[in-house]
Design a protein around this nucleic acid. Structure first.
Length: 660
RNA sequence: GCCUGGGUAGCUCAGUCGGUAGAGCAACGCACUCGUAAUGCGUAGGUCGUGAGUUCGAUUCUCAUCCCAGGCUCCA
């Protein structure tokens, strides 16, 4: 019997019997590998383990504990989910079920418009476990579109996908589902269940043991609000029980640092329903942190050559017609207020006002760039279902800046803006950034193509000159100009979009802004929009989750708490408190009405940076017992020495921030 | 806005197959005066999100509405 030879990733070759599969290859290397294998890469193409190999191919085995391997597991588990649902809900139509980050989902259309309730998940999970136990094979077949239409005749969503992918306008989603070209592939698990899919899949359902269904939700077919709403089930799947449990634990940990929960626990702010959805009130402690953030921001802007302005929350609708907001974003604005001399709106952005500041008098080229800065309150009518704590809110404050400059200043200005933004973000403990350049949305823009080209090029140049890697989001720009978005990654690896730098050649035109050039002629300035925190509220939320409520000392609402051991030490405790307070430290005191242990516990739960315990020895020697957050207790520390330490820490926190 | 689930004391939650509610923590009071993550006892606190309907009677059932959560869509 002849053999075939394949090359492994390490360059070595292996002889296998004719007709051998990737699984045979894995077995020949080792039983452990065969057990962990879920798919293979043959000549650069992901393939089923059960596919036959040919002489001369390069083959790599994909194991379950890799990103690619988990992707296969999750995709295969989605098929098991679909089969379970079709067993439990006869007549259910299924549409698409991809693997996603950390898991998978599948969308269904249940007969008679039925919906899933959370209670259904348990039964579906059990059915899935049954299918896993049955160890059904995933058997691949390929067919023509016509054959596929016949096979999936009772699955209208599959038919629609087949029709779309075989017509000229097949899109990425469809391609992911069925591949491209004339051959449509499908995977059959049993006599009663077959699903269209490019694969690859695990050899059999017995490989899929460690998964959990998580939640149900509605999801529009093809992501369109006009289309039918399908029923989606989300789940997660992993290569081992340990990995699954670790993931579930991580989710719990993330939930523990949810800013909405911490905001309540730490008494920072609240969202009273009496006020309305998406509108927060800041309690004293939250307000203190916010004030520190804002003070720092003001300080940096002042040193950065910005001029501070204030503008009103309301404006005549004509202003927003001029800016284009009413043409493009009326839906996102609060409804109009009819007043005696016109129609007024809450402002959704500050830029029109800042344009008027520029226009308030004649400007000379010598003045440029003019950098206007405002902590500006804006109101946007976010749809009810989109509100999310501080992250998505209806009334918020932008640390908003508009820079008016000459064309020859644009590149430098964008470049220095990038430096400025990154330096301030670093001061708040973020150092992992992602950059994205968003380009014109062909369906929603103002201004000429030429202007857009110019603006986009300026942003691109700034990113390139900084040697930054960035992605391009085609069609993601605001209606008035292209933008650079900066995402940060927080302490538990989630990414948040914060800062944005936007070039705008349109508003200067709409507001007819001009300056007198060196040539004594009138010229149009270029405008840059720039938010750094984005919204103070959102940034605060991100910061709160990033630090899990344990703010660094310079930001902490209460920096030190003084605890007298017993009533006899209260006078001394008060004096310690006064001295710290006089030194500018945010300090409070809790007298000995409760046991010391209880008061310390309370302070720890509040995540205070320092707890000072003072007793007999301290009164006698003017010392304190220092219990720092996350550190060891130190007794008999001279008060003056603690004072100097914490003053330095606060100063350093701020000044590190300043020079970062 | 759409789908699903929820709203009971300051917080976290239990409960009521329709007969106006309960725990822990917090608060307050008394006792204890204590050296580094919960001292003990007691008191008070709720028109059960809001409005309407059904009913002898609604926190419980129905409808509407507001708010919240997870998704979808949207996010200048």
């Amino acid at each position: 019997m002849s053999t075939l030879s394949v090359t492994l990733p390490d360059g070595s070759t292996r002889e296998l019997a004719q007709g051998a599969t990737a699984l045979d290859l894995a077995k020949s290397i080792g039983s452990g590998l065969a057990k962990a294998a879920v798919a293979a890469v043959v000549d650069g193409v992901e393939t089923d383990l059960t596919a036959g190999l040919s002489d001369g191919q390069e083959v790599a085995i994909i194991t379950a504990n890799t990103d690619e391997g988990r992707h296969v597991l999750r995709h295969s588990t989605a098929h098991v989910l679909a089969q379970a649902v079709t067993r439990l809900f006869p007549g259910a139509k299924f549409s698409v079920g991809p693997a996603i980050e950390h898991g998978f989902y599948y969308d269904f259309d249940l007969p008679d418009g039925k919906t899933f309730s959370d209670d259904d998940l348990g039964a579906i999970q059990k059915e899935m476990e049954r299918i896993v136990k049955e160890d059904q094979p995933f058997i691949r077949s390929e067919m023509s579109p016509d054959e596929a239409l016949e096979l999936f005749a009772d699955q209208p969503y599959k038919c629609e996908i087949i029709q779309r992918v075989t017509s000229a306008d097949g899109d990425a989603l469809d391609a992911g589902e069925v591949g491209s070209g004339d051959a449509i592939s499908a995977y059959r698990n049993s006599d009663t269940f077959v699903d269209m899919c490019v694969g690859p899949h695990v050899p059999s359902t017995g490989k899929l043991k460690h998964f959990a269904l998580q939640r149900t939700s509605g999801a529009y077919w093809r992501g369109s609000e006009e289309a039918r709403m399908l029923q989606r089930i989300y789940g997660t799947a992993w290569e081992s029980k340990g990995a699954l449990e670790e993931h579930l634990t991580q989710l719990e940990e993330a939930a523990k640092r949810d800013h909405r929960r911490l905001a309540t626990e730490l008494d920072l702010l609240s969202f009273p329903s009496e006020i309305g959805g998406g509108l927060a009130i800041w309690h004293p402690k939250g307000a203190t942190v916010r004030r520190m953030m804002e003070d720092y921001s003001r300080e940096r802007h002042e040193r950065g050559g910005y001029q501070f302005v204030f503008t009103p929350h309301l404006a005549n609708g004509k202003l927003f017609s001029t800016s284009g907001h009413l043409d493009y974003y009326a839906d996102g604005m609060y409804p109009p207020m009819e007043m005696d001399n016109g129609t007024y709106y809450m402002k959704p952005m500050n830029c029109p006002m800042h344009c008027l500041v520029f226009a308030s008098r004649q400007r000379s080229y010598r003045e440029l760039p003019i950098r206007l800065f405002e902590l500006g309150n804006v109101y946007r009518y976010e749809r009810a279902g989109t509100l999310h704590g501080l992250m998505r809110i209806r009334g918020f404050t932008q640390d908003d800046s508009h820079i008016f400059c000459r064309e020859d200043q644009l590149a430098d200005e964008v470049a220095s803006l990038l430096d400025f933004v990154l330096s301030v973000l670093r001061a708040f403990g973020f150092d992992d950034f992602t950059f994205n350049l968003s380009t014109k949305d062909p369906g929603k823009f103002v201004g000429s193509d030429e202007i857009w080209e110019k603006a986009t090029e300026a942003l691109r140049e700034a990113l390139d000159s900084h040697g930054l890697d960035y992605g391009v989001k085609e069609g993601d720009a605001a209606f008035y100009g292209p933008k650079i978005d900066i995402d940060i990654r927080d302490a538990i690896g989630r990414s948040w979009q914060l800062s944005t730098i936007q070039a705008d050649f349109n508003n200067p035109e709409r507001f007819d802004l001009e300056y007198i050039g060196a040539d004594n002629a009138r010229h149009r300035p270029i405008m840059l929009h720039r938010a750094l925190f984005g919204s103070i509220e959102r940034f605060f939320g991100v910061l709160l989750e990033h630090y899990a409520g344990a703010f660094p000392t310079w930001l902490a609402p209460v920096q030190v708490r003084v605890l007298p051991v017993a009533a006899a030490h209260e006078d001394y405790a008060r004096s310690v408190e006064d001295q710290l307070s006089a030194a500018g430290v945010r300090v409070d005191r809790v007298d000995a009405n409760d046991g010391l242990g209880k008061r310390i516990r309370a302070a720890k739960l509040e995540k205070l940076p320092y707890v000072l315990v003072v007793g007999d020895d301290d009164v006698a020697n003017t010392t304190v017992g220092v219990n720092p957050r996350g550190g060891d207790v130190e007794r008999d520390v001279p008060l003056q020495s603690f004072l100097m330490t914490i003053a330095a820490e606060i100063e350093q926190g701020t000044s590190q921030a300043m020079s970062a």
